[in-house]
């Protein structure tokens, strides 16, 4: 059974021009303000303190994703990946810039965009007392699927993702985190989105389940023409799945290209003759270039200098 057999046609708008870019992110920024103390002192240093109360989660990000492309977004924890995915999912309103999905603005044409997308978040969010079937039938109805047809599809797609048939009608709270994550993935696939936003979808899955999900993502693209944005910490996954990879650090995209292009660029910069791994590419772009010789000398080794650098970042 293929991904195409498992997803439903949900009467997508006929006037969608599938020839245009699937996702256009144009100069998007998002700043979060931390809550201020009730009593505020004015005086010297107030401006600096005000600045510290702001977190620039996404900083002037621009990215164009073509239809049927799988683009990976790699970044350390807190680098802005999930914020970007939330903006694309209509769950956050950007402070500046524009985002469009097949020409529809995520803010102005919110409902239309919602019909085109779905998202899997890192935490499998469900009504844990309800069964996978009860949770998914709720989702199916929200996306305008008739109940009887949806029930058949839900059973098929869950079994395809390795959920045992007898678990489908039992409460989700008795399932492992990996199993719950598979149900979350099934929920997103079920609605046949033409843009799928995957926020660390395979975190917590065992290697076999990871491969199942990765195969399913590929099938979804091949047979349903879906465009996919995926954030991950798993470099092997990025290498195996993505047509292009964007590396994001402190809210900014600092590298963008195919896996081979990025590897080649780093190899050139490091003047290495041996092959470069994606882990090394990631480290190079996110931290390696910030670890100076002086810091290595000061802390005794590259690893210790890296730890000190991370600790400084946390303090900030």
């Amino acid at each position: 059974m293929s991904a195409h057999d498992l997803v439903l046609d949900t009467a997508l708008p006929k006037h969608i021009n599938t020839m245009q870019d699937a996702v256009v992110i144009d100069g998007v920024s998002k700043i979060f303000k931390k809550s201020r103390p009730l009593v505020r002192w004015s005086g010297k240093g107030q401006e600096v303190k005000e600045k510290k109360l702001e977190v620039r989660a996404v900083d002037n990000v621009s990215l164009v994703v073509k239809r049927r492309e799988i683009v990976g977004i790699l970044g350390a924890n807190g680098s802005g990946k999930s914020t970007l995915i939330r903006i694309l999912s209509t769950l956050l309103i950007p402070d500046s810039g524009h985002v469009s999905i097949f020409g529809y603005d995520v803010e102005k044409d919110e409902r239309m965009v919602q019909r085109l997308i779905n998202r899997v978040s890192v935490e499998a969010s469900f009504f844990k007392k309800l069964s996978p079937m009860e949770n998914l039938i709720y989702a199916a109805r929200l996306y305008n699927m008739p109940g009887p047809q949806a029930r058949i599809r839900i059973r098929e797609i869950l079994i395809r993702l390795g959920i045992q048939p007898e678990r489908i009608d039992r409460p989700l709270e008795n399932m492992s985190r990996g199993m719950q994550q598979k149900v979350a993935i099934a929920r997103a696939f079920l609605t046949a989105p033409i843009v799928l936003l995957l926020d660390e979808p395979t975190t917590g899955l065992d290697p076999r389940s990871k491969i199942d999900v990765q195969n399913f993502i590929r099938e979804l693209r091949e047979e349903h023409d879906a465009t996919i944005l995926i954030t991950t910490h798993d470099m092997d996954e990025a290498e195996a799945l993505c047509d292009r990879v964007a590396i994001i650090d402190q809210g900014r995209i600092i590298a963008l290209g195919t896996v081979e292009e990025l590897k080649y660029a780093v190899q050139e910069r490091m003047e290495r003759t041996t092959p470069i791994t994606m882990n090394e590419v990631f480290m190079h772009y996110t931290v390696a270039h910030l670890i100076t010789d002086a810091a290595i000398k000061q802390y005794g080794s590259w690893e210790k200098a890296f730890e000190a650098f991370e600790a400084d970042k946390e303090d900030e």
Binding site: L91, R111, I117, R119, E123, S125, F126, F127, A139, Y143
Partner: peptide
Amino acid sequence: TFERWEGTIEHTFMAPIS
């Protein structure tokens, strides 16, 4: 309250309904 507790509120708010 319940959707906040279970973490499903984002999923519900993403649904294409009024």
